[in-house]
Amino acid sequence: MPRLSYVFTIFFLTLGPIKTIPTFYRLTQAATPKFRNQVALQSGIISTAVCIFIAFVGRNTLAKWQISLEALQLSGGLILLLFALKVITMQPQPMGGQKVTADTPLSKTFALALSPLTTPVIITPYGVVAILFYMVVAQGNPALEWKILAFIVLMMGLNYLGIVFADKIMKVIGIPVLLLVGWVFAIMQAALAIEIMLGAFNRLGVIHIPSNP
């Protein structure tokens, strides 16, 4: 059974609000409060529904394809590592032009909530891998499944709160601090990715990792 603190960390790094807040702020900083609130609510509902869909339908599909847990560990760890390295080596980019103005109609909120917010900002490729991996691990253990699902819902709730308070958060923290936090989390993600791949090699008998005393 995986450590729940470890699961929470992985989900926070892959599905959490750190990446969502600056994107939403950049896109909607000129929008009306009503527009921003509607986008926040819609993206929260859509992203939660998509995550639950991935958790059950994706896991069942993997089972039908008979994909091993080790294969999922290696592919997931590699994806996590590649995206972490991309963040670490990426040069800071200036915030782009405003995508939404005060004149943008409310009918445009759903499209914005769906893309780019739900995908690929909130639900990242490596977030999908994390959901699939832990749902496969939890298969046959209803108590663990519910805890995994609770973590997923919690992450979507944190994204919602991050979006709602994005303007206040950005004014207090600012871009430089947020970039620094992003780099720190990317380094943590890279380390966790390597840990996941080492775990797969250990399960396959390629290497031996002694158990903690």
Results as ranks from 00 to 15, higher is better:
206 V>L: 14
184 V>K: 13
115 S>K: 14
170 M>W: 06
1 M>K: 14
76 G>S: 03
104 T>P: 09
76 G>W: 00
60 N>K: 15
30 A>C: 09
126 Y>C: 02
70 E>N: 08
182 G>R: 07
131 I>V: 07
42 Q>D: 04
179 L>F: 02
43 S>Q: 14
93 Q>D: 11
167 D>L: 06
41 L>R: 09
13 L>D: 00
62 L>D: 07
193 A>T: 06
104 T>M: 06
186 A>Y: 02
100 V>T: 12
195 E>P: 07
132 L>G: 01
202 N>I: 10
19 K>C: 05
79 I>E: 02
15 L>P: 00
125 P>L: 06
106 L>W: 05
113 A>G: 11
46 I>E: 08
62 L>W: 05
151 F>L: 05
68 S>D: 12
171 K>Q: 10
209 I>Q: 14
96 G>C: 12
104 T>H: 09
34 K>W: 10
88 I>E: 06
120 P>K: 13
80 L>E: 01
181 V>S: 11
183 W>N: 04
82 L>V: 12
13 L>A: 03
213 P>R: 13
13 L>T: 00
102 A>D: 11
140 G>A: 12
187 I>M: 13
173 I>E: 13
126 Y>G: 00
148 I>T: 01
162 G>K: 03
133 F>Y: 03
65 W>Y: 15
133 F>D: 00
185 F>G: 06
60 N>R: 15
132 L>E: 01
43 S>E: 12
212 N>I: 11
173 I>T: 13
20 T>C: 08
89 T>H: 14
15 L>C: 00
25 Y>E: 05
24 F>I: 11
155 M>L: 10
190 A>G: 06
13 L>V: 01
90 M>T: 12
4 L>R: 08
52 I>V: 14
202 N>L: 13
100 V>R: 09
3 R>G: 08
152 I>P: 00
